[in-house]
Amino acid sequence: MVEVRALTTDAVVELDGDVLLLERNHPPFEGLWVLPGGLVERNEPAREACARETKEEVGLDVSVGAFVGLYDDPDRDERGNVSVAYRCTPLGEQTPTPREEASRVETFDPENLPEMGFDHERIVTDALCERKHRFC
């Protein structure tokens, strides 16, 4: 049994219909593509953490929108973290750039995603289903 250690947040950022991903440069899932996100700090609302982590990881200021879901499968993260995910929209014209935790930042067609870490492919699928107002 995995003990929950921390709450994290993940941002599904769409740019011209594509999904923004970063390539992780450290474990777990080093070398795989993931959504921007990270730890929710003490006394920080999850929505604020989502915006902060997106800025820190890919350099984008975002508006945090619709709640996508809570992801708590014990196998999603070897560290025992649970994540809350949101759909996000960039504020104005910005160019995403890799920061400290990313080797690369790219956008991908949601119908043709690369190999992804954690349960982020599921999160993207859920976000797109929510956007289309249907269950998948």
Rank of each mutant, 00 (worst) to 15 (best):
D75L: 13
E121F: 02
N43G: 06
L20C: 06
V62M: 02
L91A: 02
D77A: 03
H120M: 00
P98C: 02
E48M: 14
P36G: 00
T95K: 11
E23Q: 15
E111V: 02
E100S: 08
E56V: 04
R104K: 14
A11F: 04
E48S: 15
V13F: 04
N25I: 02
E115I: 06
D16I: 05
V2N: 05
N25S: 08
L22G: 11
A6F: 12
D119G: 13
R99A: 08
L70G: 02
S103W: 03
E53H: 07
E115T: 14
R24M: 06
F118K: 04
E30P: 02
T125H: 11
E23V: 01
G37R: 05
V2L: 11
E57K: 14
A49Q: 08
A127V: 05
K132N: 12
P27C: 04
G80Q: 06
G37L: 06
A51D: 05
E53D: 03
T9R: 00
E115W: 05
A46H: 12
C88E: 00
G59S: 03
A66E: 15
S63F: 07
G80N: 05
R5E: 14
R52D: 09
A127L: 07
V40P: 02
A66G: 09
E130K: 15
D126H: 13
H120C: 10
V4I: 12
Y86S: 00
G37K: 02
E3D: 10
A6V: 07
D18C: 06
E78H: 03
C88V: 00
D126E: 14
E23T: 04
E121T: 10
W33V: 01
D16M: 07
T9I: 05
E101T: 03
R134Q: 15
R47N: 03
E111S: 14
V64Y: 01
N25F: 01
G80Y: 07
G69R: 02
E30R: 11
Q94R: 05
E78P: 14
